[in-house]
Amino acid sequence: MPEPSPIARLRPKKAFGQNFLVNEGAISSIVGSALGSSASRLLEIGPGPGVLTERLLADGRPLWAVDLDPEACDLLAHRFGSEPHFHLLQGDAVRLPLPEGEAWSVIGNLPYNAATPILARLLTEGIPWDRMVLMFQLEVAQKLMGVPGTKAYGPLSVLAQLCARLTRLVKLGPGSFRPAPKVDSAVVLFEPVQEPPSLAERQALLAVLHRSFAHRRKTLANNWQGTLPAAALLEAGLDPTLRAEVIAPSAWLKAIRILLIQYPEVFPSSCP
């Protein structure tokens, strides 16, 4: 009797947000795009049963796989533990320490319930990457690629677009996964821009964006009332009578560079 497939051998757990990819076209697209990077090592987040892992390892580059699920880690260790360039890290990708070194090509069918904090970490903690190929709920992917003046545009749009060039590689329906989720998904390619914001600027930017978008229908002046006066916003090039959702990423970056210098007390943890 043939051995069951890796997906059949791993019980998906709702608590971990697991939906295992079974669409062959999507698997090939993700792996091909990730391996198109010149990075010397690979980082896979949420490998689950190892459908992507198996093909990534065939490339020969060192691969670090991070998964929170002990059962998945046992299966991965059984399948790939004898591979000298396979390294397994069990833990939460939101906070688990990662090996230092050269840039990664990052690959992930991210768990739906942790995709946003994982991405925020990859963009704000100085983890070196040459390319990222990541799966999100379609709604999250649309937010990442949102443009000013639209409902999708928000803090995640600004941060991601200032750090990377984003390309949606493929859209997937629920039938591409086991078990089938209730939403569509999308794979997004991240390629670093030439002059991204510094880490201090990114961290301060997130703080400013979350405050500015706290009440989307309110103006910047109203959202910042009691912390930054309208004059400070004007000095940073932000019209206090506007809503955050109409301001372009480049204007946010220009503003944060002024605010970090003029009002460092607002960002004590982000100051150089």
Rank of each mutant, 00 (worst) to 15 (best):
A39T: 03
W104G: 13
L123F: 00
P181Q: 13
G17E: 10
A200V: 00
K13P: 00
R9W: 00
I261F: 05
I258K: 10
P179S: 07
C73T: 06
V193Y: 05
V133C: 08
P179K: 07
L162T: 03
P99H: 00
R79C: 08
E100P: 01
V208R: 14
P47R: 04
L234V: 12
E265K: 13
P111W: 11
P240R: 09
D130E: 15
L189D: 13
T219I: 00
P249I: 11
V133R: 10
P84T: 06
G17H: 09
A120H: 07
R211T: 09
R61D: 06
L134Y: 03
R121E: 09
G146I: 06
V246A: 11
S270Q: 14
L205P: 08
Q262M: 10
C163D: 14
L260A: 04
A103K: 14
A8P: 00
K14E: 12
A248C: 02
V140T: 05
G108E: 07
A200G: 15
L52V: 07
L172Y: 10
L122F: 12
K182Q: 12
H210G: 00
V133N: 09
A255G: 08
S212R: 03
Q194M: 11
R55I: 02
G32Y: 08
G91P: 01
P99L: 01
D130S: 15
N113V: 03
S212I: 11
L10Q: 01
R121C: 06
G25H: 04
S176C: 14
Q194H: 14
P155Y: 07
P111M: 12
M132H: 03
L220W: 05
P148K: 07
G154A: 08
L166K: 05
Q194Y: 10
P111Q: 10
K13I: 01
S198C: 08
T116C: 01
S29V: 13
R9M: 00
H87L: 09
L89G: 09
L119M: 02
K14L: 14
I107C: 13
G175Y: 12
F267E: 10
A248E: 15
V170P: 03
S198E: 13
R216W: 08
M135C: 02
S198T: 15
N109R: 00
Y263W: 13
R121T: 11
L57N: 04
L189M: 12
L68A: 15
L122I: 02
V147W: 02
E44P: 04
D239S: 13
G237W: 06
R11P: 00
E24D: 15
L189A: 11
R257L: 11
A15R: 15
L242N: 13
S176L: 07
V94L: 12
V66S: 09
G101D: 11
Q90K: 14
F213A: 09
L242T: 13
L89F: 11
L76H: 02
K254R: 14
E44F: 06
A160E: 03
H210F: 09
G91Q: 00
R11D: 06
P148S: 07
P268V: 11
D67F: 09
S212M: 05
L162F: 01
L21I: 01
L122T: 07
